[in-house]
């Protein structure tokens, strides 16, 4: 995987990006027990197949975006849209 499609800047070399990983929502901390909190912090679906994941164009526009990628092939399945287009 050498290029990542930034929705704002177009495809750019991998080195310009940081990986944010699987999208995991933060649970409400008040009622959450240790197990729930531990799961939020550490447990991941880690699918072998399509995964919705975050990237940031850290050495570019510095914007975060979400794309879908097949982890079994590393192929990017959708080109993420800019927020205004989505």
């Amino acid at each position: 995987m050498e290029r990542i499609p930034c929705p704002h800047c177009g495809p750019r070399p991998l080195a310009e990006f940081s990986y944010g990983g699987e999208v995991v929502p933060r649970p409400d901390p008040e009622p959450a027990d240790d197990a729930t909190w531990g799961a939020y912090l550490y447990v991941r679906s880690n699918p072998k197949g399509p995964q919705s994941e975050r990237w940031v164009h850290i050495h570019g526009c510095r914007r975060w975006f979400t794309l879908t990628r097949d982890t079994a092939t590393h192929r990017i399945l959708d080109t993420p849209l800019r927020k205004e287009e989505a």
């Binding site: 995987m1 050498e2 070399p13 991998l14 080195a15 990983g21 072998k48």
Partner: peptide, 18 residues
Amino acid sequence: IDPYAGYAQKGSFSIITE
């Protein structure tokens, strides 16, 4: 390691150059 999750037994060439 390559920074992203993956199961493909291949990585990015740019990592090797670095």
